[in-house]
Amino acid sequence: MASIDIRNLRKKFGDLEVIPGFSLHAEDREFISLLGPSGCGKSTILRIVAGLEELTSGDVVIAGRNVTALEPKDRDIAMVFQNYALYPHKSVFENLAYGLRIRKRPEDEIRKRVTEVSELLQIQQLLQRRPAQLSGGQQQRVAMGRAIMREPAAFLFDEPLSNLDAKLRNHMRVEIRQLQQRLGITTLYVTHDQVEAMTMSDRIVVLNHGMIEQIGKPLEIYETPASIFVATFIGSPAMNLVRVRTDGNALVFPSGDRLSVERQLQGDVVLGIRPERIKLSASKSENSLPFEIVLVEELGAQKIIHGRIGATEMTVAFPEDVPLPTNGASVSLPGNYLHFFDPESGKRLA
């Protein structure tokens, strides 16, 4: 059982508090992504778990053992860095073997293990090369290999795919996830890429300024974002957000257009709806709003349509194989896909 427990973690750099209190429990075998914009403290949290950064207060418990005061070498973790950090003066074989060599394991065990790992990652033919002679994808594999050599209690990934091109990134995403499931090692994965977080994780932690905005399963976070920040960070194209006035059961758009909803709301609210949930049609029906198309982006599988309801800008994702209405389009916003947020706090209205 190798769960990871982070309790009341706080981190100050001088007078600047970058993590004002962070707690997280990762179950054994769980894959958790720490997702957030750059500077949100996600890498700092990972480095604290690894023991590479000192914490101001709090506890880190890995596999039931409080490792807060331990050196990185005694924490039984493995880490994959953004720049891979392969030892440039050592061959791939020696890069993989290094951790076991430090532990003074017998030579034949090291050879056996390097063979296993290199076969698993299909890098057998690269063992004699130096890191500089490898492509980005191959370096990434070697870095992965080095992490799994020792069968650690936990994997820590620090944006491991951000130096790869898009195609390779998609491929490695799947590979890392498969590998993690196969090995069943508890994983913390830091990324700023919402697609990586959505596709790979059991749970996602969305971070902003060192604070947790939301923790949940990927679809939970997509379907019921806890705040405006989460709503805009998850999903592409980003969720449409419009500040509207409420009038009984109706939402009043800045243009004066009215949309009746089933909920009773008070005062001003921020209305959110994902571009892919908006229905665009040629005919005007009841409870639909007039929509002026400004620009169409062709993506192949779908079209992204930028347009306006009055002066309010809206983005609509539209299937590629349906012809666009030529004149007089209108949109309807299905009630069960509407999100409401408090305009002041940005929090979701229950």
Binding site: L52, P72, H89
Partner: peptide, 22 residues
Amino acid sequence: PVQLEEAAMVDGQSQLGAIRDI
């Protein structure tokens, strides 16, 4: 890159060992 030393430390080496080895 400081990550080279950090990688060695995560791999099980002390800081001084990481300086010496890497």
